[in-house]
């Protein structure tokens, strides 16, 4: 509780935490919260807060295929939480390992890896996604691959920088003198020191990834239909948004509140980390 306390006193962190955790809960409890099957055709294009022909209640209305938008939003939370987390974690796995290796080994290994990271980072993110998706196709696994490929270099850079800094400290030199293996030094002595800055980056990146998956869905290059996906819902409803704004407004509010929550959380983490550093 004591370690949590500095985080809880900041109102914005609290708002961010409530939004992010709220969506996490919705994702976990989706089958209990959603009143209907997100893929089931009930009654096409009813407005929000209406009662259907068979006495169903449509809180956010239904889409052109007659699917309940509230249920699709709830299940869509599960889609975005699962794929954002998965893609961010795999990106971290690659970025962490390569960053530790490059920062510790230095020399030619570092030069080659850093150059390759810069090459990938010189693509505008969305252009990179489009090329990857055109080549390997749009499927859940391929979206995770695309995000990993484009995010790992940025994580690599952060980890490499921290590793170079820490590897020059005395306790690492002591570990080398003691004859500890290189992997032990990397994983036990250096890795734990990266958690501060990386926790902030993880939150932010989770938000970016959610935005990316949403954007790909909006462009029609994301998860294939009929998967309930917020970006995809905006894409499908866009042509009818003038007459039926509820088709696009609710999914937009959903994704915005999630990504806003994550960046407020990242902001709070950064402030508290900075304060800790100043004290130390």
């Amino acid at each position: 509780m004591k370690t949590l306390f500095p985080y809880l006193t900041k109102p914005l962190v609290l708002v961010g935490g409530v939004l992010a955790l709220g969506w996490l809960l919705v994702a976990i409890l989706a089958p209990l919260i959603a009143p209907y099957d997100p893929l089931q055709t009930l009654q096409p294009l009813t407005k929000p807060m209406t009662v259907g022909a068979k006495g169903e209640f449509f809180l956010f209305g239904t889409d052109m295929l007659g699917r309940d938008i509230f249920s699709r939003l709830v299940w869509g939370a599960r889609t975005v939480v699962i794929y954002s987390t998965l893609a961010t974690l795999t990106a971290y796995a690659f970025g962490l390992i390569l960053g530790l290796v490059a920062g510790y080994a230095g020399g030619r290994t570092d030069a080659v890896l850093s150059f390759l990271a810069n090459v990938v980072l010189s693509f505008p993110v969305l252009v990179l996604y489009i090329v990857i998706i055109v080549v390997i196709g749009a499927s859940p696994v391929n979206i995770v691959i695309a995000v990993t490929f484009s995010s790992a270099p940025a994580i690599f850079r952060i980890v490499r920088g921290i590793t170079i800094d820490i590897a020059s400290r005395d306790f690492v030199k002591a570990a080398i003198t003691q004859g500890e293996s290189t992997w032990r030094i990397l994983l036990v002595d250096i890795l734990p020191n990266t958690t501060g800055p990386l926790s902030v980056d993880f939150c932010l990146r989770l938000g970016y990834t959610a935005i990316t998956i949403g954007t790909l869905g909006f462009l029609g290059l994301g998860l294939p239909p009929p998967t309930p996906d917020w970006g995809g819902m905006v894409n499908e409803g866009r042509s009818m948004a003038i007459a039926f704004p509820h088709l696009v407004i609710f999914p937009c509010i959903a994704i915005s509140s999630l990504t806003l929550g994550l960046s407020l959380l990242a902001d709070g983490l950064r402030e508290v980390n900075d304060a800790k550093e100043r004290q130390a």
Binding site: T215, G231, D267
Partner: peptide, 21 residues
């Protein structure tokens, strides 16, 4: 923080909703 956190397609929907419709 708010303007950068909202995905661009979503802010396009919000702003169009206000200024167009």
């Amino acid at each position: 923080v708010v303007t950068t956190s909202i995905p661009d397609f979503a802010s396009a929907v919000f702003l169009s909703g206000i200024f167009v419709f």
